[in-house]
C-alpha cells in the first residue's frame, strides 16, 4: 500500500578490482528515520552516494516514490527535493546564515530589478531563513546576517539541517551529523532530527554512534561486505547485537535478512 520513498535493487559499484557495492538493496519508507550502519569500508557511504547521484552505480535500479531515476549529480537529486547534510557541512563560512540557506537557489526580486538586473530579494530570503530556523527552535535572536563562521559547531550543523529541512520534499540524507559535535550539541542535533521527522520528512541517517542510532532510528539498515545484511527494528535488539551483526560475530535471524 505504502510505496517506499526509495527502493534500490541490485546496486553494483566497482572501482577497478574493488567492489564497493555488491548487488545491494535499499529501502526507505515514508516518514521514518532509517539508520545505516556498518563497519568501516562496508560501503555504507557508497550505497547512499549511489542513491543521491554522487556516484553512478554500474548496475541496479533506483526507484524514488515508485518511479525509476538516474541521477548524474547530487544537484539533480536536489532538484527533485532530496537534500543532503554533509559531514563537512557544505556551508560557506564567510557568508551569512541567510545566504548559506539559499546558495544555489537564490530568490530574485520581481519585475525589472530581478529579471534584468538580477537583483536578489534579500528581505524575502532573510524572512524565510528566520522562519525556518524558528520552526526548528534554533532562532532566539535576530542576526540572520551573521557569518556562519561565528557560529559554534552545533549551530552550524543546525543551519545545515534547517536548510535541508526547508527545501526537502522527498527525503534528507544525513552523513554523520553528530560526529564532530560535543555531547550537548549532539543532543540538540538529535532533537532537530526528530523534529524534522515530525514534519513528515523521512531521513537516511549514516552514523557510527550506536546510542544515537538506537535513540532516533525507526529501522536500522546493517551493511556488511558491500551489501545489505539485514534491516532490524531497534526495539527488538540491543546495541551489542547490532554490532555483532555488523562485524559478522553473530548471524541475524532469518526473518530480518535482506
Amino acid at each position: 500500500m505504502n510505496t517506499p520513498v526509495v527502493q534500490a535493487r541490485g546496486i553494483v559499484k566497482r572501482y577497478g578490482h574493488v567492489t564497493a557495492i555488491d548487488s545491494s538493496d535499499f529501502e526507505l519508507r515514508p516518514g521514518e528515520i532509517l539508520a545505516v550502519i556498518g563497519d568501516n569500508g562496508a560501503g555504507k557511504s557508497s550505497i547512499v552516494k549511489a542513491i543521491c547521484g554522487a556516484t553512478i552505480p554500474d548496475a541496479g535500479e533506483i526507484l524514488i516514490e515508485g518511479k525509476p531515476v538516474k541521477f548524474s549529480s547530487p544537484i539533480e537529486a536536489r532538484e527533485m527535493g532530496i537534500e543532503i547534510v554533509y559531514q563537512n557541512l557544505a556551508l560557506s563560512p564567510a557568508l551569512s546564515i541567510a545566504d548559506n540557506m539559499f546558495t544555489g537557489r537564490e530568490l530574485r526580486k520581481k519585475g525589472f530589478l530581478g529579471n534584468v538586473l538580477r537583483m536578489l530579494d534579500k528581505p524575502a530570503m532573510e524572512k524565510f531563513a528566520r522562519e525556518k530556523l524558528t520552526e526548528l527552535g534554533l532562532m532566539t535572536v535576530q542576526s540572520i546576517k551573521q557569518p556562519v563562521e561565528t557560529l559554534s559547531g552545533g549551530q552550524r550543523q543546525g543551519v545545515a539541517v534547517a536548510r535541508a529541512a526547508a527545501f526537502a520534499t522527498k527525503f534528507i540524507i544525513m552523513d554523520e551529523p553528530t560526529a564532530a559535535l560535543g555531547v550537548k550539541e549532539s543532543r540538540k542535533v538529535l532533537e532537530l532530527i526528530k523534529d524534522v521527522r515530525a514534519k513528515g520528512i523521512p531521513i537516511i541517517l549514516i552514523s557510527h554512534n550506536m546510542p544515537h542510532v538506537f535513540e532516533v532510528a525507526d529501522r536500522i539498515h546493517i551493511h556488511r561486505l558491500g551489501k545489505r545484511l539485514c534491516t532490524i527494528d531497534p526495539k527488538d535488539y540491543t546495541m551489542s547485537d547490532a554490532v555483532a551483526f555488523m562485524t559478522g560475530a553473530k548471524e541475524p535471524p532469518a526473518k530480518d535478512l535482506a
Partner: peptide
C-alpha cells in the same frame, strides 16, 4: 568544495 556541494 562546500560551494560545489551546496549546488553551485
Amino acid at each position: 568544495e562546500a560551494a560545489e556541494l551546496s549546488g553551485i
